[in-house]
Design a protein around this nucleic acid. Structure first.
Lengths: 227, 227
DNA sequence: GGAATAGTGTCTTTCAGACAATATGTT
DNA sequence: AACATATTGTCTGAAAGACACTATTCC
């Protein structure tokens, strides 16, 4: 291969909420390192589709929310190495897809070990992957205030406690219950489904669903979900 | 060249304020089309540096603000074409650098015709470049509320009318003078230089300069420059 | 004096923040 | 009854929005 050849690679940072923490999906690279799921786009395959394929190969499921994050164009050392262009995407998956290993294990190509890691427990990552996960978490935090990304991390039906907990986890601070509910209700972006979630200990919680139309109609007004 | 070869290209969307409009720098591609300034990174050259080089080749000056925008990975038709990975950047230039052609014309490589275009006057662009300029304008509008990008489009010393006009142009709506000034002053992010700008007709205006330190100390608080 | 641009203050409404008690379900 | 979780309302301070007149300079 000529020294000027370029390798194109797609990286995916999958994020989910699990056990009260925001976690990232990693695959084992070697004894000491883990890595973000990645893959090379097939000939003629759009990069976004390659990212979707990486996700479904690993999780055995499709991801609803997937967005391009940043492109890194490092030259592999030593000098004279190949240039690797890494186009990173980040995706959000609701808790029901978090089962690891993937349900249909046979689908996974390159069957390496897979696990979800919270930030403080994260092992050492190869290359610049640690940086990429930082950028993804920052981006999610930033979008929380002016977009509906938060709802992508919840199942279709959720309780308002779950919603608030999600904001607390991602923003890393406590939010007053009453002020949070007032704002969500005043905005009208959720509606009750009528059913409740049984609670093993304590009062049952009303279930709600997100109303994308309402959100869209008011989304232009800046940080409507700022807490 | 093998059909699987990848071509890497860096695109730059340069934006400036001129004549009461937000304008984009374009170069003539052929009789009917214009294009964004672009270039291929040299062997071993980081992509960002390639973007800076594209700017200085065209403008004969360095740009202070340059940020990666989005990466497009289209396959050139017809089928079987080469994949072109276009990494786009957007840059903001203050009005004193807007002179076209560049002061030292000799520096420009590939001496094609250059011009600044406001959105409504924009000619037809090659490939997906029209989309890229849209994304850049949207990004700028989005960042206006929570970052100091606005000041990158002004000279070091500016009047508060110029600052307000800039926000009005980019946001596309009128802003009340008094409310605008109250907010800017209360934030303390500008300081008077002591001198004034002579006005050919009408009262002279006080000149101000931006205070980055003050901005940084309050920047975490969300949309502090929302109007 | 007229025309052009710069600069200034108040009132009202809306939104954010602080704060605690009651209701419903399980064991 | 004890415990756990869900749900609800008020007060206060800060910021946003609406609104009109005076000041300076040039001709």
């Amino acid at each position: 291969m000529s020294p000027r050849a370029i390798r194109l690679d797609v990286l995916v940072v999958l994020l989910t909420i699990q056990g009260g923490a925001l976690k990232t999906l990693l695959t084992r690279a070697d004894d000491a390192h883990w890595a973000l799921p990645s893959g090379a786009p097939a000939y003629d395959e759009p990069m976004r589709r390659a990212a979707e394929r990486v996700v479904s190969d690993q999780l055995g499921a499709r991801v609803d929310y997937l967005e391009q994050l940043y492109t890194f164009g490092n030259i592999v050392p030593p000098e004279g190495g190949q240039r690797v262009v890494e186009v990173s995407y980040y995706g959000l998956v609701p808790p029901e897809l978090v089962r690891i290993p993937a349900p249909d294990g046979a689908k996974r190509r390159g069957a390496r070990e897979l696990a979800w890691f919270a930030e403080p427990d994260q092992p050492e990552l190869v290359g610049d992957h640690a940086l990429v996960t930082q950028v993804a978490r920052r981006r999610l935090r930033g979008k929380l205030a002016y977009s509906a990304v938060g709802f992508e991390l919840l199942p279709d039906e959720f309780t308002l406690s779950e919603l608030r907990s999600l904001y607390e986890i991602i923003l890393g601070k406590a939010i007053d219950k009453r002020n949070f509910l007032r704002k969500i209700r005043d905005l009208g972006i959720v509606e009750p489904t009528g059913s409740t979630r049984r609670n093993p200990r304590g009062r049952h919680a009303e279930l709600y669903r997100f109303r994308p139309e309402v959100f869209k109609s008011i989304a232009a007004k800046g940080d409507i979900l700022a807490f």
